[in-house]
């Protein structure tokens, strides 16, 4: 394995990524996506349901393997890594927040957060954990089980877990999709602030123009390709683009 750790300013780089789900009829979920995201940036991904947003994030995060194309994260080429090597890389360098079903029901909040570190065979940093919990407003909930948390609290725990390994990149796939707008906004704000303070790259799928407007860049995806990119967005322009795409 050659570790091409040429340290650059580019944190996430996808080159002509294709993803086809084979089945009774093949689904071309991604049809040639190339993006390049600077380190420490916040990028929003928008698009209609079924346009390929989740597939894009899964491929970029090494959760799924693209059919063709190259994915480079923090200088590491994910192409051709063995499944276990990929898992280890993901565990140490990438954080991921799913839309729902993020937590293991029979592990406490603290254990869920520390899980990637425990799986890596390391001792969790207690002070860092307390700090994260406090920052995300979860103080005092360490020993709760996920079943006894509100939806917003559970998503914040998922974010804490994604941040706990101090990853280079955090991917979040509609992390507030299952929440009401108030707690959704709150969760996103926490994610943004914490990631910013750690200098992390964040890629976020959202349906909310106002959330997207807080990003440095918005990628619009339609039918498996990047249909448009908006730098320094405002809520109005994001809404306008989305309406354009819908037509």
């Amino acid at each position: 394995m050659t570790t091409t750790t040429t340290r650059t300013d580019v944190s996430v780089q996808l080159t002509d990524v294709h993803k086809t789900y084979s089945g009774a009829t093949d689904v071309h979920a991604l049809r040639g996506v190339s993006i390049s995201l600077p380190a420490g940036s916040l990028t929003a991904v928008m698009g209609q349901s079924g346009s390929g947003k989740s597939t894009l994030l899964n491929c970029a995060a090494g959760l799924d393997v693209p059919t063709s194309g190259r994915v480079v994260i923090g200088g590491q080429d994910l192409t051709g890594l063995s499944p276990d090597a990929l898992t280890r890389f993901r565990r140490d360098r990438i954080g991921f927040v799913f839309q729902s079903y993020n937590l293991i029901g029979h592990l406490s909040v603290a254990e869920n957060i520390a899980l990637p570190v425990l799986l890596a065979g390391r001792v969790p940093d207690q002070r860092w954990q307390a700090q994260l919990l406090a920052a995300l407003g979860l103080g005092g909930l360490e020993h709760r089980l996920p079943g006894h948390l509100s939806g917003g609290q559970a998503q914040r725990v998922a974010i804490a877990r994604a941040l706990f390994t101090r990853p280079d990149v955090v991917f979040a796939d509609e992390p507030t999709g299952a929440l009401d707008s108030r707690s959704g906004a709150q969760v996103l704000e926490l994610l943004r602030d914490t990631a910013a303070s750690l200098g992390q790259t964040v890629v976020l799928v959202t349906h909310d123009s106002r959330v997207a407007a807080t990003a440095e860049r918005v990628l619009f995806i339609a039918d498996g390709v990047i249909a448009d990119t908006l730098e320094a967005p405002t809520a109005e322009r994001v809404t306008a683009r989305m309406l354009d795409l819908g037509r």
């Binding site: 959760l63 276990d84 799913f98 079903y101 890596a120």
Partner: peptide, 16 residues
């Protein structure tokens, strides 16, 4: 299966 899949998504290797 779902629990095991989530474990894997969070960083458990196949061996683990």
């Amino acid at each position: 299966r779902r629990e095991l899949a989530l474990l894997r998504a969070v960083g458990a290797t196949g061996r683990q």
